[in-house]
Design a protein around this nucleic acid. Sequence first.
DNA 1: CCGGATCCGAATCGATACTG
DNA 2: CAGTATCGATTCGGATCCGG
Lengths: 226, 226
Amino acid sequence: MAARSYGQYCGVTTAIELIGERWALLIVRDLLVGPRRYSDLKQGLARIPTNILSTRLKELQAGGVVRRAPMRGRGLVYELTEYGRALEPIVLALGRWGFQAMGDPGEGDLVTPDSLTMALRTAFQPDAARDLDIELHVGEVALRVTVRAGTLGVVQLAPAAPPIGGRLPEADPEAVLVAEPGIRHLIGGRVTPGEALAQGLVHVTRGDVRILDTFADAFRIDPLPA
Amino acid sequence: MAARSYGQYCGVTTAIELIGERWALLIVRDLLVGPRRYSDLKQGLARIPTNILSTRLKELQAGGVVRRAPMRGRGLVYELTEYGRALEPIVLALGRWGFQAMGDPGEGDLVTPDSLTMALRTAFQPDAARDLDIELHVGEVALRVTVRAGTLGVVQLAPAAPPIGGRLPEADPEAVLVAEPGIRHLIGGRVTPGEALAQGLVHVTRGDVRILDTFADAFRIDPLPA
DNA sequence: CCGGATCCGAATCGATACTG
DNA sequence: CAGTATCGATTCGGATCCGG
């Protein structure tokens, strides 16, 4: 038995031995958005030591979670295997669960394009969402967020948009939203769209402010709904 | 910012900082079965160092996941808070995901009453399950497993049954099943009940062998159904 | 026996530098 | 761009010890 094994024969234990090491699930989170190069991952996980990223990618490959693939043109990307993609509902559920415990950001805490993309997926309510096409800014990150027929689309605009991630809509967005960290109180249903505006948690810098109602219906994490 | 923080403002990151440390989620797994004393946890997680158990319990309390409570009579138990119990669907989903990657047990790998109880919950199919009342043995572990009206009940018989866990049915079980690790191929749908019997993956030491059909319908983990 | 605390060697992680 | 090498700082694991 490996020295660092948990020594149990159990599905949960097996899962944790595959994706429980430090940073591993954040790598999976970013790869759920799309294939990424080594340097994309390194940038998206700003504080990961490069040797740890290297080690984790090897472990995730050995575990059948991640695969190396040649990128069209040249270079190579890491992408999730089918088995790795099966983690999506788990990562989304963990994001919802963790959302409940989020306070204000610590100094130095970053929001990255991939983490914000996954946060939107985490909160997305396919049944309640009406059509929507906005530009969303959080700190330096800018995303084009669309909802069409209950399907969420996210395209990363800045910074350093990777070539992968879908195609931009032709038309201009309906509105441009600039969100502060306090936006989580709107997602969490603890303030109304009107209150969020009044408290400066979010600004609508272009378009009709009533877009916030549509936004709040589409993205929602209610307290403890399993 | 804490030195060991991931430095990101994101729900997944927050979740991992709460329950991502080594052993933490296995403590949660065992507490999902019921409140446990310090020594129960130490026995159920045989290879955990006592200082790590102590440290994790403090961290989980600080994170609002676990709470200390006085035990009826005297002594004390650890139990999940409401927030901690909200991890149940996540732990079950992780167990299903990890199940797909389970091979044969390494030497020294243990099956504990709590891990087997959670494994049964992981695989339980409420919609397909017909009524059932059996005794299930895996190694040293013995459980009384009942299904009544689509609801799963598990009572731990051995070894060292804790006082918590529900009440034994009055009558004798319909059958006694003795399972080997290969039982996972039955749960995984890779062999039929008849094949499982023929290959010695499971033995019916009392009662009608046809109980295995009922068992196989009630406990099932299909490959990659998200 | 219960519920830990303490100590110490081994392994891992984090930060930085360096290379094909 | 995609990592490897190195090394000090932390954490983990195993054992022992202690107060009730």
